[in-house]
């Protein structure tokens, strides 16, 4: 045993109580977060169906996705579309709103932060569903009919031509997320003396100030907020069920999350569902990595 190993063991003995203290959480974390990932990877290579003993089938599930499953390709396209729109746009929206409210007086700031965060706090999809109801007596329809903007009631959430657009609109208003709170807190805590120093150094307007001073100083908050928004953008699924029904008309808003639930919980092709989960997992982590690289360049 060399000196380094001896030292490590000594440290481990010294901190044995720390390990004991962490154990309950780490056990649950392993069970519900880490193990599922490995289970997904493992069963992704099998034809498991919850009843028969699974047998190893190599990359067949992954081949099936691309070659045979048209619905998967639709889901893949929609997920990318929804994620690339609601992720970045939602993120920028929350960044700008956080920036805007940071200029306000503390009371008004707290109030507006609560208002902007409220749609994340509670499930408002049922209300949106009524506002966008396809009935001619629905809130939006009846006003648009009255004002003469449309002639017949629009099926906002079931018409295959428009439902995706309406969905994106609603999701943007409900996707501020916890990242928004992080950003508000970040803006609130920037060092105000930096702004005065910046003004002396020739910063002329609020945009220059944002780019050269504020954003670089809240980079840590930008990072975690981005992680949050990308992760939730790729996980969109339940919201679609609630708004557009399951499945949405012509599968226009069918996402990988919907597809996983359908394949796994309805058709019990668990092996295939696990392969899909693995793929989605890889996408989420990869997208996060790319965005983090981009953010580390902000203001440089």
């Amino acid at each position: 045993m060399n000196a380094r190993q001896e030292y490590t063991i000594k440290l481990m003995k010294r901190y044995r109580m720390s390990y004991v203290m962490m154990l309950p959480y780490l056990l649950l974390f392993l069970l519900f977060v880490v193990v599922p990932v490995f289970v997904a990877i493992f069963f992704g290579f099998t034809d498991f169906d919850m009843i028969n003993t699974p047998s190893f089938i190599g990359f067949s599930n992954y081949k099936k996705m691309i070659l045979q499953d048209n619905l998967f390709l639709t889901a893949f396209k929609n997920t990318l579309l929804l994620a690339t729109i609601t992720g970045p746009v939602g993120y920028l929206l929350s960044l700008f709103l956080a920036w805007f409210v940071s200029d306000l007086s503390p009371k008004l700031r707290a109030l507006l932060t609560a208002l902007f965060y409220a749609p994340t706090l509670c499930n408002v999809y049922l209300v949106w569903q009524l506002i966008f109801s396809g009935d001619s007596s629905g809130f939006l329809n009846s006003w648009l009919l009255k004002l003469g903007v449309i002639n017949t009631a629009k099926q906002w959430l079931t018409d295959s031509d428009i439902l995706l657009g309406v969905l994106i609109f609603i999701l943007l208003f409900t996707s501020m997320g916890t990242g928004f709170l992080t950003l508000v807190a970040g803006f609130q805590n920037t060092d105000t003396s930096l702004f005065e120093a910046g003004a002396v150094d020739g910063i002329r307007n609020r945009w220059q100030e944002l780019w050269y001073i504020t954003l670089p100083s809240i980079r840590p908050q930008l990072m975690i907020a981005a992680v949050q928004s990308i992760t939730s953008a790729f996980g969109i699924g339940t919201a679609i069920d609630l708004l557009c029904g399951n499945p949405s008309t012509d599968y226009k808003a069918w996402t990988i999350m919907n597809h996983i639930n359908d394949v796994g919980n309805v058709r019990f092709e668990v092996g295939y569902a696990c392969a899909l989960s693995t793929l989605l997992f890889i996408f989420m982590v990869a997208a996060n990595r790319v965005i983090q690289k981009l953010i580390s360049k902000v203001g440089n």
């Binding site: 519900f32 977060v33 880490v34 790729f234 996980g235 339940t238 996983i260 668990v270 989605l280 982590v285």
Partner: peptide, 21 residues
């Protein structure tokens, strides 16, 4: 690092394997 990595994916992505567990 493992815990931070887990922030990068949505728990619902692993709902099926969690069901098995």
């Amino acid at each position: 690092r493992v815990i931070f990595l887990s922030l990068m994916f949505h728990a619902s992505a692993t709902a099926i394997p969690t069901y098995i567990i």
